[in-house]
Structures are given as structure tokens and as C-alpha cells.
């Protein structure tokens, strides 16, 4: 690890000003991702601005008129997953968070930090290897290498990495908004769908946050599928492993007829992958396994797997079917 300066503050405007002043400074939240990357010499900030004293930890109802709830960016993953309001109204989020990492890590990890965790591509982590995300222009070692865990949707020649968060997959299905404080002190709200980006020619950019912007909260609009939602994560062991494929599904039902389906996938792209095609096909249809299969099939037909991850196409299809079956059965 390289030497760095450590600063903490309980004022978000101070934090932002400190960051803007030093182009090599980083925000520090739970540190479960950033510190690991610093130990590996992937991230090399020379100053850490600790955010954990900011009063941005609350989980609360949004002001009347804007149905929904707000989750503080500096609150811990564990608290969010176990909060009664989230368990009742957004069980999908709770399940997705609990499917990630381990209890110890979730106790440290913050909701904002989780959104900004970086890919787990092993070439990104190994500084002896080429990686356009870590070192733009050096090439992508994964494209023709060990890419079993990598993307099947939306990748580019420059980068085939996947975004690893489970929480964010649920946030995508829930149409969350990410609220950030800009350097000028004003707030801006970014839809989860526009928050993360595809790699294109700039894989070094994971998301659309601008330098200095600080995530203050995650806002969840009200929905009608709390009792008809499911999160399924397929992985190489039953706990403490990143997803091969995961699916968050919420279904609004009228009797056995689908009013709307909300499906997002993890482990398949550089951002949570919203399965819009499957959703469109399901709208107005009966909730039957046959219909789920048709929709899942249509979604997965768009996939472009790599040499070692062809299995993700069938796995993705099965997991969508499985998640929809579980969601429509209800709780």
C-alpha cells in the first residue's frame, strides 16, 4: 500500500471541497472495496476523505407526495437489509443485499459504497496484466482469456468485465434513483438505469458520477409487487461468491394476469441489465411457466457470450424462469 493522508469530516460540503482540491484524493466509506484495491496497488489515492461521520445514514419515508423511501448512502448494508420498512415494502432489495458478500462485509459496507464497487475481473486486480479499465490503452486480457465470469450483454472490444453488485440489480428492478450532492451544493437525481454505464470505448468509467459528486441517498419509488418479487443468485458456492448470473424479478399481477414485470439481471453486463424485451413480452400475459420461458428465451437471444461463458445464456434463461415462478407464487 502506498502512503496516503487520511482526513475525516462531518460536513458533506467540506468533504466535497477536500476532494475537489486534490485530484488524487478518494472518498472512503466502509473501505471493503477501496482498501482491498489499494493493497493490490490498483487504486492509488494519496488522500482518503472518510465519509463515515456524515449524517447520511437514515432510512426514512420520502416527503408526502413523493411516495417511497429514502436510504442514506452512508448507512450500512446490514441495516438496509434488515430494516422493517424495507423488509415489508421492498423485500426484493433486502434479499439481494443478503445474497451478497458475507455478514462481516455487509456490516462494514455502505449503500453508497456498494453502488460504486468495482469489477471483480481478475485481470483488473492483477497489475501485471493488461486491463483497459485499470490502465486505459493497455488492452483487455479477459476478452480472450479467463472470461467465464464475464459479460454476455453490452460488452465492447475494450472491456468485457461485469459489474458485481447484487444490491444494484434489485435497485434496477425497483427503478431506484440515486441522489447526489454536486460540488456546488445542489442535489441531482440520477436514475439507476443511467447511473452505471456500458464500457464502450471508456471502460475506465464505471458510472456517470462527476468528480466530487457525493452520493447522499438512494430513493425507491412505491411499487405494487412487494409480495410478488424474488431474487435468485446462481454462483459457484452457496454463499460468499459473486454471481454467475442473478435475477431480480417483481411482478404486478391482476389475478393470474401480468400487469407489468420488472426484471433485472446481474453478472451479465457492465451494469445491472434490465430485461426490457422479456418484460414487454410478459405484459398482459398469463403467469405461466410457458410464458416465462418464451420471454426469457427472447431476452437471452440477444446475448453475445464469450468463449468461456456460453453457459450463461441457458443459465440466464432458467434463472429468469425460476425467479418469475417464485415471484408470481407470492409470499
Amino acid at each position: 500500500m502506498r502512503p496516503f493522508k487520511y482526513t475525516n469530516t462531518n460536513s458533506s460540503s467540506d468533504a466535497i471541497n477536500l476532494l475537489i482540491k486534490n485530484p488524487n484524493a478518494s472518498y472512503l466509506a466502509g473501505g471493503t472495496n477501496l482498501i482491498d484495491l489499494m493493497k493490490e496497488d490498483v487504486e492509488k489515492p494519496n488522500e482518503l476523505i472518510d465519509l463515515t461521520r456524515l449524517a447520511l445514514t437514515k432510512i426514512a419515508l420520502l416527503p408526502t407526495g413523493q411516495n417511497g423511501i429514502s436510504i442514506g448512502a452512508l448507512g450500512k448494508n446490514t441495516e438496509a437489509a434488515n430494516h422493517p420498512m424495507i423488509r415489508e415494502q421492498y423485500p426484493l432489495l433486502s434479499k439481494a443485499i443478503l445474497a451478497g458478500a458475507s455478514a462481516q462485509i455487509r456490516n462494514m459496507a455502505t449503500n453508497g459504497g456498494n453502488l460504486l464497487q468495482r469489477t471483480r475481473c481478475s485481470y483488473f486486480y492483477d497489475t501485471a496484466m493488461p486491463c483497459n479499465k485499470r490502465n486505459p490503452g493497455s488492452g483487455c486480457a479477459a476478452k480472450d482469456g479467463f472470461n467465464r465470469m464475464h459479460a454476455i450483454f453490452g460488452w465492447s472490444e475494450e472491456c468485457v468485465a461485469v459489474y458485481p453488485s447484487d444490491m444494484a440489480v434489485a435497485l434496477s428492478a425497483l427503478d431506484a434513483n440515486i441522489k447526489v450532492i454536486q460540488p456546488d451544493g445542489k442535489f441531482r437525481s440520477i436514475s439507476i438505469h443511467d447511473f452505471h454505464r456500458l464500457p464502450e470505448q471508456q471502460p475506465e468509467l464505471d458510472n456517470t458520477l462527476k468528480r466530487g459528486e457525493l452520493i447522499s441517498s438512494i430513493e425507491l419509488p412505491k411499487n405494487d409487487f412487494a409480495n410478488h418479487s424474488a431474487y435468485i443468485k446462481v454462483r459457484d458456492r452457496n454463499s460468499y461468491a459473486f454471481a454467475l448470473v442473478s435475477v431480480a424479478a417483481g411482478v404486478v399481477l391482476n389475478g393470474n394476469r401480468i400487469v407489468s414485470a420488472h426484471i433485472a439481471m446481474g453478472g451479465v453486463a457492465h451494469k445491472p441489465w434490465r430485461a426490457r424485451k422479456a418484460e414487454a413480452l410478459l405484459k398482459g400475459k398469463m403467469a405461466t411457466v410457458a410464458n416465462f420461458e418464451l420471454a426469457a428465451q427472447a431476452e437471452m437471444e440477444q446475448a453475445k457470450p464469450l468463449a468461456q461463458n456460453k453457459f450463461k445464456v441457458a443459465m440466464g434463461k432458467n434463472t429468469i424462469v425460476s425467479a418469475l415462478s417464485m415471484a408470481t407464487k407470492g409470499t
Binding site: 471483480r120 481478475s122 486486480y125 492483477d126 459457484d236 458456492r237 452457496n238 454463499s239 460468499y240 461468491a241 459473486f242
Partner: peptide, 13 residues
């Protein structure tokens, strides 16, 4: 190259 990739069984397995 780390315990995130090398999967020894967990309690849940």
C-alpha cells in the same frame, strides 16, 4: 488469485 476466486466451502455449502 484470492479467496474471492478460489472457492473453499462455506458453512452454507
Amino acid at each position: 488469485r484470492s479467496f474471492a476466486d478460489y472457492h473453499v466451502p462455506t458453512n452454507f455449502d
